[in-house]
Every structure is written in structure tokens, then in C-alpha cells.
Amino acid sequence: MDAQFWHNKWQRGEIGFHQTDANPLLSRNLPALGLAQGARLFLPLCGKTRDIHWLLAGGFQVVGVELSPLAVEQLFAELGIVPRVSTAGALRRHEADGLTIFAGDIFALDRDALGRVDAIYDRAALVALPGATRTLYAAHLLAITNRAPQFVITFDYDQSRMDGPPFSVNEAEMRGNYENAYRLSSVESSDIPGGLKGFCPARETLWLLEPR
């Protein structure tokens, strides 16, 4: 799997992973992050998620990074906003009041360009990446966000039953990648009705990661 895989998904409109409403795991549990009004949340591999609309409407600031320029264009179009566009190293920065989205490779994003992060909301980034890349990704987020607290949503299922993405990420892997830097707790966990993609038994978990 490489960058072209995701570019092709967006170009063909194969975005079944995109939800039409804000994720209820976020809307039900956001207070657990203990954020002040106006806090700045980082959404890695954000696509054009409706969670951004919901967070902005709630008075939060949002910064995201997304590989697909098409997804970024669609996000701002759906928000009805014309962003200011500039270059940030290898990335393109799209800015509007309270919202900054970087288009490009998340591994090209550094701490200086990213700026202040009060919390990370990882709805679909970790589970979009294959195994070895997940470890690199977790370490990269630690480096560029100064160990900001995190919400991370995972799916746990028999990987032999279905090809990712989304990939299966179990508790042992979560602890292996994050426990040295964070205290991990399961905020909410349940079996997915009908299974993942309508056939694969899976458990969805919202993790709270609090810096040690």
C-alpha cells in the first residue's frame, strides 16, 4: 500500500470510510479530554470528516493533515470556505479562521509547521496504516505534538478474515506503541453491529491516551 492507493480511492469516489455525520464516539466523549473552549485539536489523515464541522461549530480550533489534495478541496467546499493557501516545506497549507489543513505526507509535517496542539483526535489514521508504518506513525506524532493527549479509535478483528484498511489494532499493539509515553484507558468499547464492512466480526474501541 502506498500514497497512490489513497489518491485512487478519492479520485474514484471510493470513500466508504467517510461518515456523513460527526462520529458519536467523539460527540459523546469529548469532555474526557478536559479541553478548554477554543482548544486546538490535531486530526491526522483527516480526509473531509464531518468531525471537523462539528468541532468548529463547538468553538474549537482544528488542524489536520491529509494526503489527498482532492479531499482537502472537498472539505473546504463543503464548509463553504475559501482558504488561504501557502507552502509549508513539502506540504500545502490551507488556512481559514480556526482551521488549518496541510495537504501532503504526514511524515513531512514537523512541529514548527504544525504549531500548538492541545489534543489529538485519531479517528481513522492509525487503522489506515499497515503494521510497520503504525509504529513509525505513533513515534512521529509524539515528536511533533509534544505528547499531546489523544483519542484513538481502533478496530480489533481477525485480520485473516478481511484485508485492511481499516487494519486490526489490538490492545497489545496499542500498549506497545504508546504505553511508554501515555497512560491508556478504554473510554468506550463495543462490537460493531453486523460486523466491519457488514460481514467481519469486530470490536471498536475509543482509547484515551494521557501523557505520563
Results as ranks from 00 to 15, higher is better:
1 M>T: 12
6 W>T: 05
7 H>V: 07
13 G>H: 04
13 G>Y: 03
16 G>E: 02
18 H>P: 06
20 T>C: 03
21 D>H: 06
22 A>V: 13
22 A>D: 02
23 N>L: 07
23 N>K: 08
23 N>I: 06
25 L>C: 10
25 L>D: 11
33 L>D: 00
35 L>R: 13
35 L>D: 00
36 A>I: 01
38 G>Y: 05
40 R>L: 00
40 R>D: 00
42 F>L: 01
47 G>E: 14
48 K>D: 12
54 W>N: 04
57 A>E: 15
61 Q>V: 05
65 V>K: 09
69 P>H: 13
74 Q>N: 15
75 L>M: 15
76 F>Q: 11
76 F>C: 11
76 F>E: 13
77 A>N: 12
86 S>P: 07
91 L>V: 06
92 R>P: 06
92 R>L: 15
94 H>Q: 10
94 H>F: 15
95 E>M: 01
95 E>W: 07
97 D>R: 01
98 G>D: 02
99 L>Y: 04
101 I>C: 03
103 A>G: 06
104 G>C: 03
104 G>D: 06
115 G>T: 10
128 A>F: 14
130 P>N: 11
131 G>F: 04
132 A>Q: 15
132 A>R: 14
136 L>I: 12
136 L>N: 06
136 L>G: 08
137 Y>E: 08
137 Y>S: 06
139 A>S: 03
141 L>Q: 06
142 L>A: 15
147 R>P: 02
156 D>S: 15
166 P>Y: 09
167 F>I: 05
167 F>Y: 15
169 V>G: 10
171 E>S: 05
172 A>Y: 05
172 A>P: 01
179 E>V: 00
180 N>G: 15
188 E>A: 11
192 I>K: 09
193 P>H: 08
194 G>Q: 07
201 P>A: 08
201 P>Q: 12
202 A>V: 15
205 T>M: 02
206 L>N: 10
208 L>P: 03
208 L>N: 01
208 L>C: 01
210 E>C: 11
211 P>Q: 08
